[in-house]
Design a protein around this nucleic acid. Structure first.
Lengths: 212, 212
DNA sequence: CCGGTTTGACTGAACATTCAGTCTAGATTC
DNA sequence: GAATCTAGACTGAATGTTCAGTCAAACCGG
């Protein structure tokens, strides 16, 4: 009986399916409590197949984290690239962390980050993912700030590097609150606070962004 | 052979000794990889004794986290209480997160936080520790800001609540960098950035604090 | 000798990983 | 175009280890 799409996964397709399954299990159970059997069951297959594609459990989970971060970053920056103003792009960057609307996928992403941070100190592979990602993220902020200073949208007295470190730290901290669903800091509040900070530092008005 | 302090642990003393052992193991191995046997060995006793004092592994580890956070907070606020000016106390609050000197214990504390965050979404006990702690911490900031506004040290236009949420998020984010030893954000830089933010928002000069 | 404390020896379950193959589709040969 | 071969995809049933938690006995201070 030809079930086509469901059974007919091969090679690379299967790999990605397993990575996505792993991610969903990690989000719901947490990295530490994610068993190979869970991932296999979620993907409708056997534990042995999972090991067939990824030699070890650790390799599977680490690769899943990398896969998720890459996908998130790629999707985000692609969306941003289409925005003409620096103010708009910076706003987009902030919205990626603090979705003004209630985006269910965003919390998942941040739950993964919490595991990623906790793993980093003792897992070199995970640490590398984190470092690279942080670097790219800060660089994205720096680039946007410099562009905005060029066009006169932003105050030129601000040091882009320091601003990037500060803003990314602030966003990380707010993301923790969002991930843990702190009632005092819903995503909308986090968004406002981050925007207030950015607008205050860079000297643009919040209306600029609404108008643009 | 009377080794007094080392052997003669009973009841409550033994409990605390085990909690401290648990903390050291968690810091070095991570929460997920901390075994009862590790804690027992570190404390120079048997796994069975650990279970005798704490019914389950989870109870041991959860209680250890609570113990650590309480101790850290208590020690910190006690030190701060002695400082006369609001600027000084706020500086102290920031220094608790970003030790200007290289305090080895501080990184341990933050490594524990990373585990605590990662655990929170699925472990109600840990989530409660975190929530209570975050609340106390923000409250400490609010109290300090209001006091400083009272004495005229701080700009009265700032909303203490929003400032507290923002500053604590920023400190959390910087703490992640410190815990993970990001080379771009050493503790001294984190300290400077946080102080710049606070001084800018509240309108006090960084010299006030050096003078005080 | 009583009660809290401590231990070594065990048990049972959970799991990652291995193994020895089966099945299928496509290539190769005649 | 049938027969044979090959390789990759996939599986069920072991295997062996690691651990949390149990238990019954020993220890010891008062």
């Amino acid at each position: 009986m030809a079930q086509g799409t469901l059974d007919g996964q091969h090679g690379e397709g299967r790999r990605e399916q397993l990575l996505r399954s792993a991610l969903e299990v990690i989000v719901s159970r947490g990295y530490a409590d994610t068993r190979i059997a869970d991932v296999a069951e979620h993907a409708g297959t056997s534990p042995a197949l999972v090991i067939y594609y990824f030699k070890t459990r650790d390799q599977l989970l680490t690769e899943a984290l990398r896969y998720s971060e890459d996908a998130w970053y790629a999707a985000g920056t692609q969306r941003l690239a289409a925005i003409p103003t620096a103010v708009g792009r910076l706003t987009g960057l902030i919205a990626m962390t603090c979705p003004p609307d209630t985006d269910p996928a965003a919390r998942s992403e941040w739950l993964l980050w919490l595991d990623l941070w906790a793993l980093s100190p003792r897992n070199p592979g995970v640490a590398a993912v984190r470092r690279k990602f942080d670097e790219r993220w800060r660089q994205a902020i720096v680039t946007t700030v410099l562009a905005g200073q060029e066009t006169g949208e932003f105050d030129t007295a601000v040091d882009a590097g320091s601003f990037a470190v500060t803003l990314s730290a602030l966003l990380d901290g707010l993301a923790v609150q969002i991930a843990l669903e702190d009632t005092d800091v819903p995503p909308s509040r986090a968004y406002e606070l981050a925007m207030d900070f950015a607008a205050g530092q860079l000297g643009f008005s919040l209306d600029d962004e609404r108008a643009g």
